[in-house]
Computed example of a mutant assay.
Amino acid sequence: MAKFMLLIYGNEQEWDAMTAEEIQRRDDGHVAFVEAAGSAVLDSHPLELAETATTLHSNPAGRATPTDGPFLETKEALGGYYVVEASDLDQAIAMARRLPELKMPHCAVEVRPVRDVG
Results as ranks from 00 to 15, higher is better:
residue 67 T to N: 09
residue 118 G to L: 12
residue 15 W to G: 01
residue 86 A to F: 03
residue 27 D to H: 11
residue 33 F to A: 13
residue 53 A to S: 14
residue 23 I to S: 07
residue 51 E to M: 07
residue 87 S to Y: 00
residue 59 N to I: 00
residue 50 A to V: 07
residue 30 H to N: 06
residue 73 E to P: 05
residue 109 V to H: 07
residue 30 H to L: 08
residue 3 K to S: 14
residue 106 H to E: 09
residue 85 E to L: 08
residue 100 P to T: 08
residue 29 G to R: 05
residue 58 S to P: 03
residue 38 G to P: 10
residue 69 G to Q: 00
residue 33 F to L: 08
residue 26 R to L: 14
residue 111 V to S: 06
residue 39 S to T: 12
residue 100 P to R: 06
residue 51 E to T: 08
residue 36 A to E: 13
residue 102 L to G: 15
residue 83 V to N: 02
residue 45 H to D: 05
residue 98 R to H: 07
residue 12 E to C: 03
residue 45 H to F: 06
residue 49 L to M: 01
residue 2 A to K: 12
residue 48 E to S: 09
residue 81 Y to T: 02
residue 76 E to W: 06
residue 118 G to V: 15
residue 5 M to L: 11
residue 99 L to P: 11
residue 36 A to T: 15
residue 83 V to S: 09
residue 10 G to S: 14
residue 97 R to G: 01
residue 55 T to D: 07
residue 28 D to R: 13
residue 30 H to T: 04
residue 18 M to C: 03
residue 71 F to P: 03
residue 63 R to Y: 06
residue 77 A to N: 09
residue 61 A to D: 14
residue 6 L to F: 11
residue 7 L to G: 01
residue 8 I to N: 04
residue 6 L to K: 12
residue 42 L to A: 10
residue 66 P to S: 01
residue 114 V to A: 10
residue 19 T to K: 03
residue 73 E to Q: 09
residue 102 L to Y: 10
residue 64 A to P: 08
residue 95 M to V: 13
residue 60 P to I: 04
residue 96 A to Q: 11
residue 10 G to D: 10
residue 21 E to K: 13
residue 49 L to I: 06
residue 8 I to A: 05
residue 7 L to I: 13
residue 112 R to M: 01
residue 41 V to Q: 04
residue 75 K to N: 07
residue 50 A to P: 04
residue 59 N to H: 10
residue 45 H to W: 04
residue 60 P to E: 07
residue 79 G to H: 04
residue 105 P to G: 01
residue 96 A to F: 00
residue 1 M to W: 02
residue 53 A to M: 07
residue 89 L to H: 13
residue 3 K to F: 10
residue 88 D to Q: 01
residue 61 A to L: 01
residue 67 T to Y: 05
residue 86 A to Q: 09
residue 72 L to F: 12
residue 58 S to A: 12
residue 100 P to M: 03
residue 7 L to C: 13
residue 78 L to Q: 08
residue 84 V to A: 10
